[in-house]
């Protein structure tokens, strides 16, 4: 589906998966997101970068209705995402989310972790689900771990399984929240390769990461957040070579070293 979609979106006005306008989020007096306007089109990979505490992760959590918001609106395919609303359960099925912390269910095997929500939420048949789950595991190179428990996996393997667990719901968009931040360096690669593969296949994604090289490789668009606002955005090649703002430039400098 993806190639055609992308071709189509080149001709027609791009189909928006996510629309955010005037989003305000605060914890008490602390305003974390201060009027965010943005949208994500089908097949697009948007990478959010910015200094710690700039609100990137909070933004993803708001998109999934895990946090109440204090102003503005979020919609998925035109359907409003409202914290605590009944429709949230429906909407969340279309949003896949992977967290920084390993969040597999420890009492279920890898396979059961992946199969749980298609069967319980989407009422799909066990046979179909298992078949698809095995295909996904194959794709991330973990078919042999299907019967293992999460405790028997490395961090990188856990995150790959978590990705499969979200993908099997056929989400409209994947939200990846610093999924390599807790990993040992040698495992970062195996996870990010899976994400790159997803991007190649046209999966719509919003990614929060501190891996700049990865961001440059995977993103269609970089959004630089600081102090709760979008400071700058653009295609990676432009952004990383010639940031338009002084703040972005300063931020990027923190990743380069010279003697």
């Amino acid at each position: 589906m993806t190639e055609q979609e992308q071709n189509a979106s080149a001709a027609n006005p791009p189909e928006h998966i996510i629309d955010i306008s005037g989003l305000v989020k605060s914890f008490g007096d602390n305003v974390v997101l201060d009027g965010i306007d943005m949208s994500v089109s089908r097949g697009e990979v948007v990478v959010l970068i910015g200094p710690s505490g700039c609100g990137k992760s909070t933004l993803l959590r708001c998109l999934n209705g895990l946090e109440p918001i204090q102003g503005g609106s979020i919609s998925l395919h035109g359907e409003p995402v409202v914290y605590g609303s009944k429709s949230l359960y429906k909407i969340r099925q279309k949003i896949g989310m992977v967290f920084q912390s390993y969040d597999l269910f420890p009492h279920l095997t890898v396979l059961k972790n992946i199969m749980l929500s298609p069967i319980k939420v989407q009422k799909r048949s066990k046979e179909d689900t298992e078949k698809e789950a095995m295909e996904l595991l194959e794709r991330v190179g973990l078919a042999d771990k299907a019967k293992s428990y999460p405790s028997e996996l490395s961090g990188g393997q856990k995150q790959r399984v978590a990705i499969c667990r979200s993908l099997i719901m056929n989400p409209e968009i994947m939200l990846l929240d610093e999924i390599t931040a807790a990993l040992d360096p040698e495992m970062v690669h195996e996870v990010l390769n899976v994400v790159l593969d997803l991007a190649k296949n046209g999966t719509t994604m919003m990614i929060v990461t501190h891996e700049m090289a990865f961001a440059e490789a995977v993103a269609d668009r970089i959004i630089f957040l600081d102090g709760g606002s979008i400071i700058e955005q653009g295609v990676p090649s432009e952004f990383f070579k010639r940031p338009q703002t002084e703040r972005a430039e300063r931020f990027l400098k923190t990743f380069t070293y010279s003697k």
Binding site: Q93, I95, F99, D103, S117, K120
Partner: peptide, 11 residues
């Protein structure tokens, strides 16, 4: 996060 990831999956 066990609660959050359950909810994220649409449960």
């Amino acid at each position: 996060h066990q609660f959050e990831s359950s909810l994220s999956l649409g449960l």
